[in-house]
Simulated scan of single mutants.
Amino acid sequence: MAGMNLTPSDPSSFILMGIYGLESSHEWISIPFSISYIIGLLGNFMLLFVVGKEQTLHKPMYLLLCMLALTDIATSTSVVPKALCIFWFNLKGITLGGCLTQMFFLHTISIMQSAILVIMAFDRYVAICSPLRYTTILTNVQIAKLGLVGLIRAVLFSLPMPLFLTRLPFCANRIIPTTFCEHIAVAKMSCGDITVNKTYGLVIVFLVIGLDLTLIALSYALIIRAVLRISTKKSHQKALNTCTAHIFVMMIYYVPGLFFNLTHRFGQGIAPHIHIILSNLYLLLPPMLNPIIYGVKTKELRDKVCKYTCRS
């Protein structure tokens, strides 16, 4: 509780408390943070390196994996270095500009990741339902254009969040009980009315996640219908195996994300440190697990990775 009596020396800055309620365990908590960050960086950079080096992997599916890897690297790098500065050196201060910049990038990357998962679902739909037309419907150029549209959407949806916050008056006690600047957490530091912030945050959650999940569900409904028309069991399994990696990645992104966003707004009975741990897991687990999932589930990628890592 003593930490909550702190006030920033700079009136335009905030203090990030880390894992509020578990300050005495920060050094121990930094260990899984560091390990997951290093594993995530190694896995995603390896994926980018292998796809870049191997001409046979210059396909839409692997271009999408590279996009996902870039967003994973950006997500963890936006959060972990500052969190480790808090855990190891007690460097808790962050300027208002730095806080708003971190928030903007985190929300932009999160919305971009959701767009990439939608494009991946469409990629799997075309590969299974229209395999003969796959190379004409989905080219690398088309994937790049879809990725650009997803990025523009992410920027347009995220930009109002810091703009809304710049119009709010902030109280003298600017203590944010977490490791990073999140929209609602920063808004709660204001002495003004944050109804617009709360409403916009909820609209974005349901608009982005709701729309994207609907499109993904539609894609998989069409995929399942196409698979059921295939006569042999072996063909069923082969078709569905092409989707398993995407399904796993989608689950570790959407399930924790929905749980975090809803409990952060409506779970007042949950202990603060549980909220903070969940929010960090939401940002740390996907970057660490995504390259592992695709490395295990995608034989072509696995073989190419082994080509570089298993040389005698």
Rank of each mutant, 00 (worst) to 15 (best):
T95F: 05
P11H: 08
I29E: 08
C129F: 01
A226Q: 14
R167E: 13
N241R: 13
L211Q: 11
A217I: 10
F206T: 04
L262H: 00
S219D: 07
L213D: 08
M161D: 10
V305E: 00
I175A: 07
D193C: 10
H236D: 01
K307T: 13
Y308D: 04
L96H: 13
V208S: 12
I137K: 12
L151I: 12
P287C: 07
I292F: 11
G18H: 04
L70G: 03
S190G: 06
A69R: 05
E23I: 00
L148Y: 09
N5S: 14
T101L: 15
L213H: 03
L262N: 03
P169E: 08
N280C: 15
T244M: 12
C243V: 06
V249C: 15
Y62A: 00
G210I: 05
M112H: 09
L215G: 01
T166C: 06
H26R: 02
L65K: 07
S76W: 00
A127E: 11
Y200V: 00
L16E: 06
T166K: 06
I277D: 13
P160G: 09
T195R: 14
H273E: 14
G21Q: 02
I116H: 09
L281N: 06
I184G: 03
A127G: 06
I223Y: 06
P287L: 00
H246T: 14
